[in-house]
Design a protein around this nucleic acid. Structure first.
Lengths: 347, 347
DNA sequence: GTTAGCACTCTATGACGCTGAGTGCTAACG
DNA sequence: CGTTAGCACTCAGCGTCATAGAGTGCTAAC
């Protein structure tokens, strides 16, 4: 026994129905709502086959069928028809990008909000990965007697600043000198490329100025810790509470506590890199137990052809993939363009 | 009929019991568990009185009694015995402050985490209010051709930075000049004190240098918007899901969505300023509908005798006030000391 | 004033049976 | 030989009902 056209039709009908109703769907319902031109009995036979093939399952004997994870996968890969965003929605998105184009954070959070509003699920956005960008410039600014600020500009335009303490006898001239050395040594390098050898080299160069040696190390260390600062933005977390599959407090708790732990979430995202285009990860295709009943639709956004971050939507496996994929696709494109514009302006 | 010693004992027993069990407590339970030396019947009589006085209520005829909001209030004001933190806990808190004393954000989030872990409720911390602090120094640093960074240092040591775009022909010398003017005019003033007149004054002074006029305005505006940047840190949000009163998804949703909206939360906090010492706000003593079944224990933390922020714990009205109050009190003291140390080091 | 006793109330729980949705099988049909 | 009508069967969900248990309020006795 193998998949044929009518089985596909039936599977499509089951999934379509289940996505909207969240109820197991029976043979009668399909016969009534979808015009397959056959009787419920025939559909029952097909369903029996589909179950044997593993595409659908039965919660209990006298219930209808629901799609299995494999069913969703088949649907996403072969059956689904992509939807197109309406003009109205396209306009709404474009409006969302008109203001506040000068702050990375604003763009990210705007995108996330729109994404969650349009899909009614939870939006997940990783801010631009700093590992992929290289140092462009490092500035050290003395603010008061013992306090200075490190400002690191990356080639992507990303910018990070941090406070450091400095010895009392350090003045701005010293700091400028240090910046110069750092710029010369580190300019154009990515964080990954900064090896211990290089640090030692800087160290020795600095050692001519004994009293600011410690400081230089401090700066590097700060820089390295800043490295891990790529944040994850979440939008519409509470949307999942509207989904019937999350009427159970325990499930809510496990999922929310996953979302609360940024490390885990980052891990999850990094382990399901979408590569090019939009990727769909269904249930246990993601490693973590907590999202076994969830799916993610994700895509990378790019600057200069380089993927610099990931954007995605997290919802129950029973989500409207066709719609969500279209939205993610469109938003990714827009986000890439917007980021590109911002970075171009800065370089 | 009026409150007397035995009624107090009974009320205390009811509240104590209800706090731990979350179940209505009956006369038998009290007679058994708390040694009042009287029979259940007598306690029933007292309970009847207490109900008439409004301190307790009955969910339904054949159930025990639960404290009313007024009952909790009476308990907090007159009956409760403050608990003391054990040496073990004091040590844990002190450890928490040992590292990372150089970043305000770290201190805040550390405090919040400890607070929520120790109380098992949700911790709410407002970062230092910037309105209360005055400008100490403003720096403008040119980063690239069209891009500069504004760094604002407040007298509290708080620090804010923001990116701005500048015209191409502006160089660091121009920026230094602007910083100087701004420092001269704004130094020592709080945000509140910056009036339109002052801005106009600066404006006119700047007008000598036509081409950087726009820039100056930009800087001020950025500064003003930075103003509203006092964030609210939340710790242990999911703890409330462990409370039996939040087994209902709808309640969870309303409360969480309140917490998600920073403006509302800020409003809530600002409307219940604790003043000196630790304040307790029970149920509808706070204005918002969403927290009618919650209480907050809050206190201000200080630098130089000035309250600069608020720290609090949010939980169901049925919380262990004695314990929570002690924890908040201790944490506030510690936070104040730590902040003071940080700011002293910076001034 | 306190307490034992008792009737009363009301929730929670579990058993029971019914209903309706849905299936799987079989036999008849084209 | 695929399709379908018919039918017996299964099972979750729901309402009903009776029971148990916790707790009260009242009364009368101490």
């Amino acid at each position: 026994m193998t998949m044929d056209a009518r089985k596909q039709q039936v599977l499509l009908a089951i999934i379509t129905d289940f996505i909207t109703t969240a109820e197991p769907v029976g043979s009668r319902t399909i016969a009534r709502r979808y015009e397959l031109g056959v009787s419920p009995a025939t559909i029952r036979n097909e369903m029996s086959d589909l179950e044997e093939l593993g595409y659908i399952e039965q919660p209990h004997t006298s219930a209808g069928r629901i799609p299995s994870q494999m069913g969703y996968r088949y649907y996403v890969d072969f059956l689904m028809e992509k939807k197109k965003l309406s003009l109205f929605e396209v306009n709404k998105v474009n409006k969302g990008y008109e203001n506040k184009v000068n702050q990375i954070g604003e763009v990210i959070s705007n995108t996330g909000d729109m994404l969650s509003k349009m899909t009614q699920f939870t939006a997940v956005i990783m801010t631009p990965r700093i590992e992929m960008s290289s140092f462009k410039q490092i500035k050290l600014v003395l603010l008061s007697v013992k306090q200075a600020m490190v400002i690191v500009v990356m080639n992507t335009g990303a910018l990070q600043s941090n406070l450091i303490e400095v010895p009392e006898d350090v003045n701005q001239v010293d700091l400028d000198m240090i910046s110069n050395v750092l710029n010369a040594k580190l300019g154009g390098l990515t964080f990954e490329n900064i090896k211990a050898t290089l640090l030692r080299e800087i160290y020795s160069e600095m050692s001519r100025h004994k009293n600011i040696l410690d400081l230089s190390i401090d700066v590097i260390e700060k820089g390295m810790t800043l490295n891990r600062e790529d944040k994850i933005y979440l939008g519409g977390v509470l949307n999942i509470l509207n989904q019937p599959e999350f009427h159970n407090i325990e499930k809510v708790k496990t999922l929310l506590s996953l979302l609360e732990q940024e490390d885990m979430l980052r891990n999850l995202l990094e382990n399901s890199d979408p590569g090019e285009g939009v990727a769909v990860r269904i249930g246990s295709e993601m490693e973590r137990e907590e999202v076994r009943e969830c799916s993610m639709v994700l895509a990378n956004y790019h600057v200069d052809g380089q993927p610099i971050g990931t954007i995605g939507v997290l919802g129950p496996t029973r989500m409207d993939y066709a719609w969500v994929i279209s939205v993610v696709e469109y938003m990714t494109k827009n986000l890439s363009v917007t980021m590109e514009k911002m970075f171009k302006g800065w370089r």
